[in-house]
């Protein structure tokens, strides 16, 4: 356990997460042929939301959003960011469990608000989580079987030695499956069902204002960060660069460089996700479930079988 990493890694995750939200707004604006807001717009929004008076709907309303934010921060602590990891004891199984804490906290808050739009949003949120957890579990199983470990840190270290997981032929298929469910994890279109602004008045967060809204924005930023970072860690080898930096390992500068490489990889993945986001319309919930339980699950299952046979 590393005290510096314990403080630095959530900070990095928050700042990059908010930056990613701004980047996504800017890029979709450019795709629409607009100028778009400045990249730091989400920071201004969060500041504004913190300076507004908030209206509470009871203790659970306050508790839920805090639970969701802290849950996501804990999730970040288990995540290796380049050469930086706060806790290296956690495995992928625990990661899966903790991933539900974010949506669960939002759902608690939304249910306490007793807004009908929130209730619809919550039910959609959990259905969507149920839909993407199945292929996600299969994908993670395939990865764990292939590397013979459940520790995220070890997976990243083995990739540094042998090269990116997605470039080894056994894990290409689970990688593709993960990429197919990535928009669902990030809540991007075509899976922007939970917080559909035009349909259900932004869903679970319909009653959030002021500080609750600020906390939600921070949580959303972290959730975005975690979804992409997991992909980069499992399949793109974290902060390693095809083993080029191995000879230099040991100094602080290489650690910082690895963090930057990690973030660069994340930006690349985000870009592809945003292009999908910009061109697709929104699924209905049953279409989303049909899709998620059909193609990504099938592909992930095939990948798991191949990996299991070879091992």
């Amino acid at each position: 356990m590393n005290i510096v990493a314990l403080i630095v890694s959530p900070l990095i995750a928050l700042i990059t997460g908010l930056f990613f939200l701004g980047l996504s707004r800017k890029i979709s604006a450019r795709i629409h042929w607009r100028y778009g807001p400045p990249v730091y717009q989400p920071f201004i929004d969060v500041m504004r939301a913190f300076s507004q008076k908030s209206i509470t709907h009871g203790n659970f309303f306050d508790f839920g959003i805090i639970l969701s934010l802290t849950g996501t921060i804990v999730l970040v602590l288990f995540l290796p960011i380049g050469g930086l990891w706060a806790l290296n004891t956690g495995g992928l199984i625990m990661f899966l469990y903790l991933m539900l804490l974010g949506p669960f906290g939002i759902a608690l808050s939304g249910a306490a608000a007793a807004n009908p739009n929130s209730s619809i949003g919550i039910s959609r949120n959990f259905l969507l989580a149920l839909a993407y957890e199945v292929p996600l579990l299969l994908i993670l199983l395939a990865v764990m079987t292939d590397y013979n470990t459940i520790s995220l840190v070890e997976i990243v270290e083995k990739q540094a030695a042998t090269g990116m997981a997605i470039s080894s032929w056994r894990l290409v298929i689970p990688g593709i499956a993960y990429f197919l469910i990535l928009p669902a994890i990030l809540g991007l279109r075509p899976f922007e069902i939970t917080g559909a602004v035009q349909e259900i008045a932004s869903g679970p967060i319909a009653e959030f204002g002021g500080k609750h809204m600020a906390f939600y924005t921070l949580q959303h930023a972290l959730q975005t960060f975690v979804g992409i970072a997991l992909f980069v860690d499992i399949f793109l080898g974290g902060g390693t660069l095809f083993g080029l930096l191995n000879s230099l390992a040991g100094t602080v500068w290489v650690d910082i460089l690895e963090i930057f490489i990690f973030l660069l990889k994340m930006v690349l993945v985000l870009f592809i996700g945003l292009f999908v986001n910009a061109v697709y319309p929104r699924f209905r919930i049953e279409q989303a479930m049909q899709y998620l339980w059909k193609w990504p699950t099938l592909i992930a299952f095939v990948g798991l079988v191949i990996v299991a046979i070879i091992n």
Binding site: R25, H32, W33, R34, P37, V197, A206, E207, F208
Partner: peptide, 22 residues
């Protein structure tokens, strides 16, 4: 708010509920 005049340049975006608005 859309492409022609693009109010989002100034951070002006429409929201769905009055709770999030100022």
């Amino acid at each position: 708010i859309t492409t022609r005049w693009d109010a989002e340049r100034f951070g002006i975006i429409p929201v769905a509920t009055p709770r999030q608005a100022n």
